[in-house]
Amino acid sequence: MIEVEGLSKTFGWRKPVTAVDDISFRVERGAMHGLLGLVNAGKTTTMRMLATALKPTAGTVSIDGFDTVGQTREVRKKIGYMPETTDFARWSSGPDYLRFWARITGLSGSGEKARIAELTEFLGIAEDSEESPATYTAGHQKMLVLAQALLADPEVLLLDEPLTGISGEDRAFLLGKLEELKRRGKTMVMASPQLSEVQDLSDQVTILVEGRATDPFPTADLLRQVGEGKHARIFVKAVNLSAGALTALKGLKGVVEVKPTSTVTVIYVDPGRVNVGLVRDTLDAEGEGTAPVEAAEITLGDVFRAIVKEGA
């Protein structure tokens, strides 16, 4: 079980930057927790603190009752960490890369070979073995890094954007393997910038935006939070809407904010309560019916805004 309590991390001392600000969540044994966030949301910093590679500025993380700061060695025996990015230029082959990490993990020489063969087979990269991993497809590179995380058969897997940058068959294959690992009872934390990835695999989700986080909630609530099939931002392609139109839009139930910019007017809405049709009807009633109205895709920011507002 993983317990994260009030976790914060600040870098720098002259101009301190808070990368992670007071995050708390709990992951039950055998469950997967999604950390959803865009670039610079604080996902990697959080993952590194969970992986004991970074010391928190405040707060605690415990894994199976062991504190990541005070009982580092015990925690490290329980975790497998898959970082987001790796440069493979220095490795002559996939097994060469895995042999290095097997040594650092402390696997015995005899167990190393069998484990590497088993993992490359499981993750479908056995046939690449003699190639330099720098020439692997992005998907196979991800499999190789996942194999590294699995070397010591850890109870807990910390996966930093395991599916980012891969698509098609590789993506489906890796998703399948992560599901299989979950079925095998691995406890997992997965950071991702994609709603769909987290939605497919996680039991619980925490959304991160610029280091701040929502309270964790069940993934099943994610769609309810944003409103399935609805849109959270609506653009009115008109620069100078009349004061009456702006007031009418602001007065709609479910409109969070109306923000005129230099090119469009952006309407932030509570998903499920306001849609394009309602906005169009309101503009028609105010004599602005010619302004084109479009809905944007749901973004993490929309989800975050919706959730924060609901919690307020």
């Binding site: 060695r73 490290r76 025996k77 990015t85 440069d87 493979f88 990490w101 650092i104 993990t105 402390g106």
Partner: peptide, 11 residues
């Protein structure tokens, strides 16, 4: 290569 953060997660 992002080697150190990963190495530091090992026992």
């Amino acid at each position: 290569a992002g080697l150190l953060p990963l190495a530091l997660s090992k026992p």
